[in-house]
Structures are given as structure tokens and as C-alpha cells.
Nucleic acid binder design. Structure first.
Lengths: 226, 226
DNA sequence: GTTAGTTTGAAACCATTGTTTCAAACACAT
DNA sequence: ATGTGTTTGAAACAATGGTTTCAAACTAAC
């Protein structure tokens, strides 16, 4: 029960900080344990001691960042339940973009998730069930509110709702996944309001998209028509 | 000048076929030369002989698939110049989805491009300039047709046009990049009409989005950016 | 058949990277 | 101060993967 004072926490903490940065930026596979240790100013033995192996380190980071992201950037961003669906959609998009394009610890989760979507690490089986699916079902509910669609009984969303949610998430994710391309295609200096601009764009674009879909095939429950 | 008959072409061809499949599926970095050789029923020496190294093999594949994709799936999909912008947009989306979700050789290019966007291989410097940028400028022109925006003089599209093009491409790419997630989230058997369904969805959604953006900040000199 | 150039197969080489090991350094209770 | 359990540092190990090498196999011309 000895040796549990400052320095142990120090090394473990430094390791997690370094690992978060590196995993978020390069993804699980492309990150190396040595790279992380170097950044944390420690060595391989510490990883083995504190986290057993690379997978263990990754899992620890993922779990921690998931918890943190849910408190710092909840999907509703602190809206009340009586907010309009439009407000909820904007909050959702904003929250997702903050997690994808933000800096530092609270943004790790989004970036890790994006990496998992593009190339599942295999280090955590529950990623899909406990991280991705909830995000989708929550978004699907917002969409259904706007299209006046019934909540399907079996839990399976309609194809239209699913594709719509996919369109919205796809737009957001692309701004992270394609960041190298964006930089090359259209270099721009650092702009702290950029995330808001993109939020406005995707929100407006998606609301228009949803309206168009609803007009094209109105919901059976007597949706509005053009 | 000898030995240039059947078997040489055979091995080289088999190598390129195998490499195309593997690179398109796993990306440059995650693919291994040994994996490719095994699939091509040859060995490492052949790669060194015919293509010098992994980069050379990749570059050969990329160039070939680019040429093929442009003839098989041109961005206008054979539309006449007098087609409406809406028709052109649908053709563009359809073409992109075919290249991303299709099977076999003609679909290599889209998948390779998606991988390059997500994680530039560094094996080809010209990817951005000669493969990605043209796709964007073409799409931007379609968008401008619909928003009645002037073609900007300096070649720099307006931010609104850029973000719109990005929203459209992002939706399409997501259906490829997130394919593992889709399968886990919503498993579905093989459906040959799926690409058409998604094309319809993204087209309708995006047309609605463009209308909404135009309504919000009408006509020329795009509205709300800094 | 001989010969010269081409192509292939097998092995080795070398750098990278995840993992393990173990002794030294350390912290703390006694 | 001593002893005990904890933590760290350095090295070694094993597996993977890109690259190189070179002799054997092959092809075509003579």
C-alpha cells in the first residue's frame, strides 16, 4: 500500500494525457506506444505497469473521454426539454462539431469516435453499442419530431429517418476526417468562430433537407405539405 | 527484349488486380505487400521488379483507376450540357456513390480517393491537385448554378459554395467510410438498388438544403461569412 | 542447343513496434 | 535505519513488414 503518492499519479496522468492527444490525432493503429511514452516523458515499462498494454491504455482513454464528453458537451447542450426540434438539431450539430473540431481533452471523444467509425480498432467491442448507437437514436428522435413520424415499435427507425441522420452526421464527420484535404484545398488561418459558422451552415442545410424530404413523401400521420 | 510474352503480363496484371482490391479495401498504410502478393499468387520479388516498391505499386494503381473511373463514371454520367442543375447534381451524387460503393475495378478510384482524404498516403503528391480539386470545382459550379452566384474571379469559391459542396461530398463519403458502422447499426442483406435509394435521398436532401441556404441569404455575394 | 536477357522464388536484411523482463530507484510504515 | 511493496528505466525479445539480393527458371533469338 505504499508508493501511491504524487509521482505515481503523475506518470499515469501524463501517460493518459499524451495518449489522448496521440490517439485522437492519429487513431489507434497509427499511434505507437513509444511515441506516447516519449510525449509523456516516461517509458514503455510504465504502460505495461499501469495499463497492461496498448489496448488497455486505449480503453482507459476511451472510457474517460466518453464520460467527460457527456458532461462537457451533452448532445442537447443544456437545452430544456421544451426546446423546438430545430433548436435541438442545432445543439446536436454544434455539440458534435465541438467534439470533433475542438482542442484538448473534451474533444478527444469525438475524434476517437470518428476514428472508430472509419477504422474500428477492435480494442473495445462495446464502442458501437454504448457510444455510437445512442448518438444515432437521439438524433433520429429529433428528426422524427420534425417529420411527424411515429416512433417505430420495434426500435428500428424508418429508412428515411436513418438516412437523414446519416446525412447529418456525415456532414459533421467530414469536417474532421477531411481536415487535411480542407487545409490543402482552402488554407485558412485559425478562426475561433469557424465552428459556429459551420454549425450554422450544416443546420440550415439540414433543415432544408428535412423539409424537402417531408414535402416529397409526407408522413402518413398527416404531415404538412407544400 | 525477350521474355515479354504471356507470363510477364500475367504476373504484373495479377499484381495490379490484387493491389487494387487490397488498397481500396484497407487503404495504403494498412495494406501489406505480402498480403497483395499472396492474393496475386506471386511473391515479393515481383513487386520490386515490376513496380520497384510499395509506393510505386500504389501509384500505378491510382493512376490506372483514375483514368478508368473518368471514362466509366464521369462526373456528369453522360448528361448533355443542357441538363438542368438538378439533373447534374443527381448525376454527380450518383457517380460518386457508384465509385464509392460499387464493386470491382471501376470502383477502386473512389475508394482510394476516400482513403487519401481520410489519411493521405504521401505516396502521390499530386492526388489533391489532380484528383480531388477537380471534383470540387466541378461540384461547386453546379451549386453556383442553383444559387445564381457569380463565378468568383480569383478561382476561390465563396465560403457558402464551399461549405455546400463539402456537405454534399461528406454525405456520400460517409456511406463508404462508415460502412462498418452501418453494417453493425443496421444490417441488411445485399440490395442492388441500394445505391439508387441513397442517391435519391442525398439528392433530395441536398436540393432542399441548397434552397434553404439560398432563401436565407438570397442571390449574389453570399451572405453571412466573415 | 546455346546464349543472353527477363522474370520469378526463396531467403535474408533491416527498421519498426508491441510486449516482457528484471533490477534499480523510490515511498512509506515501522 | 530497515524492510516491504510500488514504480520506473533500460534492455531484450518477438512479430511484422518493407526492401534487397541473387540464383534458378524461363523465354526468345540465333
Amino acid at each position: 500500500m505504499a508508493g501511491s503518492s504524487k509521482n505515481r499519479e503523475d506518470t499515469k496522468t501524463r501517460l493518459m494525457e499524451a495518449a489522448g492527444e496521440v490517439f485522437a490525432q492519429y487513431g489507434y493503429r497509427a499511434s505507437t506506444v513509444r511515441q506516447i511514452c516519449q510525449r509523456a516523458r516516461t517509458n514503455l515499462g510504465s504502460v505495461n505497469y499501469h495499463f497492461r498494454d496498448k489496448k488497455g491504455l486505449y480503453a482507459a482513454i476511451f472510457g474517460q473521454s466518453l464520460k467527460l464528453a457527456l458532461t462537457r458537451y451533452p448532445p442537447d447542450l443544456g437545452l430544456t426539454d421544451r426546446a423546438t426540434p430545430e433548436e435541438k438539431l442545432r445543439a446536436y450539430i454544434h455539440s458534435l462539431l465541438l467534439r470533433l473540431m475542438g482542442e484538448g481533452l473534451p474533444a478527444w471523444h469525438g475524434k476517437l469516435l470518428a476514428q472508430e467509425i472509419a477504422e474500428p480498432s477492435g480494442a473495445i467491442d462495446e464502442v458501437m453499442e454504448y457510444s455510437i448507437r445512442p448518438l444515432y437514436t437521439y438524433l433520429a428522435a429529433i428528426v422524427r419530431e420534425m417529420t411527424n413520424e411515429e416512433k417505430p415499435a420495434g426500435g428500428e427507425e424508418s429508412d428515411r429517418t436513418f438516412l437523414t441522420a446519416f446525412s447529418i452526421v456525415g456532414q459533421c464527420l467530414h469536417h474532421h476526417i477531411g481536415r487535411h484535404m480542407i487545409e490543402a484545398l482552402r488554407p485558412r488561418g485559425f478562426d475561433p468562430t469557424r465552428i459556429e459558422q459551420i454549425t450554422d451552415h450544416i443546420t440550415c442545410f439540414s433543415l432544408g433537407g428535412i423539409r424537402a424530404l417531408t414535402a416529397q413523401a409526407p408522413s402518413e400521420q398527416g404531415g404538412l405539405n407544400s
